[in-house]
Design a protein around this nucleic acid. Structure first.
Length: 890
RNA sequence: GGGCGGCUAGCUCAGUGGGAGAGCGCUACAUUGACACUGUAGAGGUCACAAGUUCAAUCCUUGUGCCGCCCACCA
């Protein structure tokens, strides 16, 4: 295909090009693939963003790596597909919806479940696509024809099937446990969604007097309000101070209830007073102590986070219940108070009663919801759980056997550590937007779990003689459905061709903060239900912070919105290239610096102008991928082809190893400096005329293909303008190293030209020769035969060439002997400095080689290298001394 | 408490067991057949600190300091 010489804009305009080319790709469905067992699969399941989400910088960077990998593997000819989808994000979406409804004066409960869900779906239709629009503007090319949603009928069926199967296998169970309760969201949260936030508070020291009238004990607590539900005081069994108290009773102040002093190993004598109040229904450690000692477990905080008369939840141990219930009338003044309000009141009352011994300022952390940021209340509650141990074991084994590989490797240890310490997973949520539990109860609370209501009735009739059922209103944790993602997205439980060829996926890319939350669950559930690991490689992309390493946040005012702040300024290409440039494999943080995006934007313009130069050559361009015969290629041609070969090789390895910083470094270095600053300038020498059009076109064509996965638009625009084969660069082939000739010796000779030109430019600056003047340069007569070399030097250094008698040896030596002509004093000065510099280099090198230890112990390569270096210095020194001698008046 | 990452030029970061690098910023010059979203040149660094291993350490080991993150039931 031969391209007409078009009119090309002087400046590359991403705003015009990018949407146009994206629409073209979309219309042609170039990102779509079907399973093709004849080709190796390369599948990435896109971590489904929340439908409420906006594309933030973390998405932009992480998802760009997925796009790069998919595009690269597609160009390699693999059956590559990137599977997109969205997550219903139960709690997050419900929160947003409730807020929206409030603007209309409506409430969730007022609407009722059915109407609320209907509104949620409407809302999703309206706004759920905005993140996809951002992704498209960023140039992401997942297989949009295969987009899925976690609440799709197919995925919902998978969720129900898994829940029921796990229940029947005894891995899903219902029980009363201490759970994380968010009093603001009015729902439970999994451990993984709870984060610690540091706060300044107090450690209150409170005296519980002994029942027999003694001083009793002083306990230290950060949560005095929960003392209403205390059922014991615990001390360490070996603590001498309290030995006599163990087994005796102390009296809770204000409410005058007697509780025992018990001994438990969990207590650390060194902390606080060495005595701990035990409140099993409001603290994890206390709960475990309570279990060990069969203590009653009253709750005194309700679901709204208010103080309540003792509540007994389900099968709580209830010995001594009478005494606890009897306290209700003594705590009426606190009932209904918010927990933090109650804390103030109780502290004041304890102080008034003389029970408050000390208030010690104290820095600690409190659990908060990673969603609502409300302080989590540990509460005893009847919920649904998944037993983790039987699932975790095979998932650990898959990692330890090497079936799953982490990049960087060290994150494998994070995964391992997480799986070793998993507690059972609380999966029931008290929200409506989600997969409702396939669980029904009979009037007498018998539990029926089934895939459908029909099946549930049948079971109920057979087992319990009733079909009067009510369904559990709770829904499943969002992560339950996302845990199935890599296979549910492929159609599981149906045995689809996609599942057959594309599972396991080759790569999963995500952030380190969800290694336990998500990655481990996909592995556990994939192994259990498909019988195979879900993916072979997990690439953990760095987390994005601001330029000074601070978390990006609206309140700090340092958040960068890629769609608002970057794409309009730098284009999608500039944004992508600039982000990837900062991604270094071993670094777990990316301190985002916008300057890299600006550099990338200018780089795109630079390449664009190299294209303009190329297509404007009067001799015209040959067809795609046509090189002149090797014997016609000039030294400069051989050099640029060799450099191209090396660059493609480097970029290939970089993409293979997720080293995006290395790939962008190599592309930038080659494209801007090697290609534009040196080769393209060299083609302005007359001797390059015969071959330059073909070589420029060939190099640009291969180069933009190597860069395409990172910067899809500018590369496509350039590729389409050049002679090319095929309809779009998206489906073009990866540059074949075998077809890029490499001439290492000639390339080294041209390196000498580069070095010489640098030296001449340097001399020009030093001698203040105006750039518009041609500087005078003499080349040894023996180099005159190499007209291409002489002209290249003349063009690049803007020099007028004369010859002098002399010069011999290898081409590189003859190039080295090229010299600038200036007035004698200036030249002498320069040569003298060169001699001094070279003498010191020679001395350093000689000293090193004279070191017996070095010669004896260093590797042969290094010693030989050092000798070669010394040799080179000596020759250069000799050359410079000769030149200096020539100048010295006789 | 455990684990991980970082500390290199004013800023942001590469890099290597053997001659300290880039971009931006700064200074000076320049409009040379594409590009001023450009080119050329220059200034600028005891590679956090200490000890060790080594013929040789910015790089490896250990320790210290500072910054950041993750995990953990010290109330």
């Amino acid at each position: 295909m031969r391209t007409e010489r078009p009119e090309l804009a002087k400046t590359y305009d991403p705003d015009e090009v990018e949407p146009r080319l994206y629409a073209r790709s979309l219309a042609a469905h170039v990102f779509h693939e079907d399973p093709d067992p004849a080709r190796p699969p390369f599948i990435i399941s896109m971590p489904p963003p929340n439908i409420t989400g906006r594309a933030h910088l973390g998405h932009a960077s992480t998802y760009t790596t997925m796009d790069v990998e998919t595009r690269y593997h597609r160009m390699l000819g693999e059956n590559a597909d990137w599977l997109p989808g969205q997550d219903h994000a139960a709690i997050a979406t419900e929160t947003v919806l409730i807020r929206e409804l409030a603007k209309e004066g409506l409430t969730r409960d007022g609407l009722g479940r059915e109407a609320f869900i209907a509104r949620a779906w409407e809302w999703r239709e309206l706004y759920g696509n905005s993140i996809n629009e951002s992704f498209q503007r960023l140039g992401f090319g997942p297989d949009w024809d295969r987009e899925r949603f976690t609440l799709d009928p197919g995925l919902s069926a998978a969720v129900i099937k898994v829940f029921v199967a796990l229940y029947r296998d005894g891995l899903v169970y219902r029980g009363t446990r201490l759970i994380n309760w968010d009093p603001q969201q009015l729902s439970t949260l999994s451990d993984a969604e709870v984060e610690s936030v540091e706060v300044d508070t107090f450690l209150w020291h409170i005296r519980y007097r002994a029942e027999d009238g003694g001083d009793g004990v002083v306990i230290a607590t950060t949560r005095p309000e929960t003392f209403l539900a205390d059922v014991a005081v615990a001390v360490h069994p070996d603590d001498e101070r309290y030995r006599d108290l163990i087994g005796k009773n102390v009296i809770l102040p204000l409410i005058d209830r007697a509780i025992p002093v018990i001994a438990d190993e969990a207590v650390e004598s060194g902390f606080g007073t060495g005595a701990v109040k035990v409140t099993p229904a409001h603290d994890q450690t206390d709960y475990e102590i309570g279990q060990r000692h069969s203590l009653p477990m009253p709750t005194v905080i309700d679901y709204e986070g208010r103080i309540a008369a003792p509540i007994w939840r389900y099968e709580n141990a209830a010995e001594n219940r009478g005494a606890i219930d009897a306290q209700a009338q003594k705590m009426t003044k606190y009932v209904g108070l918010d927990r933090f309000e109650a804390r103030k009141q109780i502290v004041a009352d304890l102080r008034a009663a003389g029970a408050l011994v000390k208030e010690e300022p104290y820095h600690t952390s409190v659990p908060t919801s990673s969603r609502s940021h409300a302080v989590i209340e540990p509460l005893l509650s009847l919920q649904w759980f998944v037993s983790m141990e039987p699932l975790a074991k095979p998932a650990l084994e898959a990692y330890r056997s090497g079936a799953i590989r982490f990049v960087p490797e060290r994150f494998g240890r994070t995964y391992e550590a997480g799986l070793e310490t998993l507690r059972d997973w609380n999966i029931s949520r008290q929200v409506w937007w989600g997969h409702q539990l396939p669980v029904w109860y009979t009037p007498s609370d018998d539990v029926v779990v089934a895939e459908s209501e029909e099946e549930a009735r049948k079971i109920a009739r057979e087992q319990y003689g009733t079909d009067d059922l009510r369904r559990d209103p709770d829904t499943l944790d969002t992560w339950f459905s996302s845990g199935l993602w890599p296979f549910s997205i492929l159609g599981w439980p149906e045995q689809t061709p996609e599942l057959a060829h594309w599972y396991p996926n080759q790569v999963m890319i995500t952030g380190r903060e969800i290694i336990f939350l998500w990655v481990s669950r996909m592995v556990m559930l994939g192994l259990r239900f498909v019988g195979k690991i879900p993916f072979e490689t997990v690439f953990i992309a760095p987390l994005v912070f601001d330029i000074h390493g601070r978390k990006m946040s609206k309140s700090l005012g340092n958040a960068i919105d890629p769609m608002e702040d970057l794409v309009p300024k730098y284009g999608a290409d500039g944004t992508r290239f600039g982000m990837l440039r900062q991604m270094r494999l071993e670094s777990q943080e990316l301190h985002f610096d916008e300057r890299f995006c600006d550099e990338a934007r200018r780089f795109a313009n630079k390449l664009w102008n190299a294209l303009r130069y190329t297509v404007a050559l009067e001799e015209g361009l040959p067809g795609a991928a046509v090189l002149p015969p090797a014997d016609k290629l000039t030294l400069a041609d051989r050099w640029i082809l060799t450099e191209l070969h090396r660059t493609v090789e480097t970029v290939e390895k970089a993409y293979d190893g997720f080293r995006f910083g290395v790939a962008t470094d190599a592309l930038l270095q080659f494209g801007w400096y090697t290609f534009c600053d040196w080769y393209l300038e060299a083609t302005k020498a007359p001797s390059q005329r015969e071959t330059r059009a073909a070589v420029l076109s060939f190099v640009l064509n291969a180069f933009v293909r190597a860069m395409h996965p990172i910067a899809p638009f500018v590369t496509e625009e350039i590729w389409l303008t050049l002679p090319h084969d095929g309809a779009t660069i998206v489906t073009a082939s990866w540059p074949d190293l075998a077809e890029i000739p490499s001439f290492p010796d000639d390339a080294a000779a041209f390196d000498a030209v580069v070095k010489k030109v640098d030296e001449l430019r340097n001399a020009r600056a030093e001698w203040a020769i105006p750039p518009k003047d041609w500087m005078k340069v003499e080349v040894p007569a023996s180099l005159a035969g190499e007209s291409g070399v002489v002209e290249a030097i003349a063009t690049l250094a803007r020099a007028e060439i004369a010859t002098y008698d002399g010069g011999n040896g290898a081409l590189r030596d003859r190039i080295g002997a090229v010299r600038a002509v200036a007035d004698t004093a200036k030249l002498r000065d320069r040569y003298q400095r060169d001699v001094a510099r070279l003498e010191s280099e020679v001395a350093r090198s000689e000293k090193k080689l004279a070191n017996e230890g070095f010669v004896a112990k260093a590797s042969a390569d290094v010693v030989a290298g050092e000798r070669a270096k010394l040799d080179e210095y000596r020759r250069e020194l000799a050359r410079t001394r000769d030149a200096l001698a020539d100048l010295t008046p006789a």
